[in-house]
């Protein structure tokens, strides 16, 4: 599993998803031209691996926020709270899950609007 992750990251580092067509395609984008919430994830990862945080954020802000959440979990772990305990606290009620789903939905809608103010979400 770890090996697979390393191989995938190495391929992503070496081959820019903007120039190589062998990556799996987003069906929604291919069929309709719309961006889904996950569109830009490969590009964002590619930019992250090259240390270009701003470009990564422009490609998929949601991924960066998710990584932030993971980082926060890791920090709590270092301070002695295992992730299982923290997750139990977060999701003992469905509120947070619903809020996160709401954010993802809003992100999907906003990044597809042809409004200059939301252009930074459009990869």
């Amino acid at each position: 599993m770890l090996l697979l992750a390393v191989v995938v990251l190495a391929v992503l580092f070496q081959f820019d998803p903007r120039q190589h067509g062998f990556y799996p395609k987003c069906q929604l984008h291919s069929l309709t031209g719309l961006n889904c919430a996950g569109c830009g994830t490969l590009r964002a990862t590619h930019h992250l691996l090259h240390g270009e945080f701003l470009l990564a954020f422009r490609s998929n802000a949601l991924l960066i926020m998710a990584l932030g959440g993971l980082g926060w979990l890791g920090l709590r772990w270092i301070r002695g709270e295992p992730p299982a305990v923290v997750l139990q606290k977060w999701f003992s009620r469905p509120t947070l899950a619903l809020v996160l789903v709401g954010i993802a939905l809003a992100f999907t809608v906003l990044r597809n609007l042809p409004v200059a103010a939301f252009a930074w979400m459009n990869p």
């Binding site: 903007r18 120039q19 291919s30 569109c39 830009g40 994830t41 590009r43 990869p123």
Partner: peptide
């Protein structure tokens, strides 16, 4: 079937 799809550098 990916050869039939358009690649615009923005898929995924």
């Amino acid at each position: 079937f990916q050869s039939e799809q358009i690649f615009d550098g923005k898929n995924f």
